[in-house]
Simulated scan of single mutants.
Amino acid sequence: MRKVVVGALVLAMLGGCAGSKMNTARAGTPYKTLASDKAALVVAQCIQFGWQDESVFGVDAGGFKEPTEAGGFTVYTTGGDYFVDVRTAGAGSTINYFAAQDDMPAKRRLAALATCL
């Protein structure tokens, strides 16, 4: 029981760190802005699934999805270094992709999310 509580506390602390990192990134310009004719939920679920592919991302495979206060969804990686905000735009959606740096992992995650458009 104690291990479960400690594990939950560690995840909550990591989530807080990732959240502040993502809020800082949102104050800047997205790495890439994309659009889709698909609904925001469909796009977000597809991105989440794609980012969890261990054959592509190895041990860094991780995709978590949360609803946003402004409507839509955020899909993010464990440390929050890569994340997308998916928002409804008319009948489709707008996707803002944020990456900590312009590197190969950022490009791989962009390629994976592009298949969801």
Rank of each mutant, 00 (worst) to 15 (best):
G7A: 09
V10C: 01
L11E: 09
G15W: 08
G15S: 08
C17S: 01
C17D: 00
G19F: 05
K21R: 11
M22F: 07
A25I: 03
A25L: 08
R26S: 05
G28P: 05
P30G: 10
P30W: 12
K32F: 00
S36P: 06
K38L: 15
A39D: 15
V42N: 13
V43M: 10
A44H: 13
Q45A: 14
Q45D: 15
C46E: 06
Q48G: 10
F49L: 14
W51L: 14
F57H: 10
A61F: 09
A61N: 09
F64N: 11
E66H: 13
P67I: 14
A70M: 13
G72Q: 11
G72Y: 12
F73N: 12
T74N: 13
Y76C: 04
Y76G: 03
T78Q: 11
T78V: 12
G79P: 01
G80Y: 07
D81P: 01
V84M: 07
D85C: 00
V86P: 07
R87Q: 14
R87E: 10
T88R: 12
A91G: 07
G92A: 08
S93Q: 06
I95S: 02
I95V: 14
A99W: 00
A99F: 00
A99N: 02
A100R: 07
D102P: 02
M104T: 04
P105A: 05
P105Y: 04
A106L: 00
R109G: 01
L110T: 03
A112V: 11
